[in-house]
Design a protein around this nucleic acid. Sequence first.
DNA 1: GTATCTGCAAAGAATTTGCAATCCT
DNA 2: AGGATTGCAAATTCTTTGCAGATAC
Lengths: 119, 119
Amino acid sequence: MVLDVVKNSMDHPTTDMIYTRVSEILPNISMGTVYRNLAQLVAANEIMQIGMPSGADRYDWRIESHAHFVCTDCNTVIDIANINIDDIKRINPGVKDCDIDTVNLVAYGKCPKCKQAKA
Amino acid sequence: MVLDVVKNSMDHPTTDMIYTRVSEILPNISMGTVYRNLAQLVAANEIMQIGMPSGADRYDWRIESHAHFVCTDCNTVIDIANINIDDIKRINPGVKDCDIDTVNLVAYGKCPKCKQAKA
DNA sequence: GTATCTGCAAAGAATTTGCAATCCT
DNA sequence: AGGATTGCAAATTCTTTGCAGATAC
């Protein structure tokens, strides 16, 4: 059920949002269960966890390595291509000999809608 | 004093580490004060805050935009060059029209020392 | 029937805040 | 005196966990 909700959510939901949505069908579910199921699904590589430098983590049904843009006005999250690990190594001799496993990239700014709303 | 500690710390300290170091000279300082001073210094662009997707934020005296590598074994933080915003836009037509203000990039993996320690 | 999963509530980590007391000028 | 800064403790936010009861095979 938790997996279903994530797979059908296009808005990179937070745990809270997932909890609310699952609650509509399973009214007695608890936050603990949502967290536990999300952790399992992430471990099983069924969904991706997006660690946010500030605020609650979000979840994504797209599991291929990718990054995100977050609008600082409306909080919309847009998927973007991740940076290539070889590119990082190429421009950073200091980490040339490191084993880089994952890259967490979050870009912040204003989406086109909020950009023009301000103007 | 807080600024001094950050400027003299080469290890990208967390608030806790900064608190401990300042405490050695000002034993009565409180966490609240450390947080408030750090927030002020970040706002004044005197230091940089490194938002970590999980765990406590870290602080850096290098204020030019840059990214970080974190060793998942020993927690060492290594400065790396940040990705260019134009590069992100070039490979991501979906965010071409977004105003990107900041890019938070954290790479995780094993540093050379921990890599060979394991082997 | 035993291993797993759940709800609940409490604990935990990281950070923020209200407020009275203190400091500086 | 008057405004800014502090220490302290409580509050917030997000997440994890212990445990007794419910579920699943």
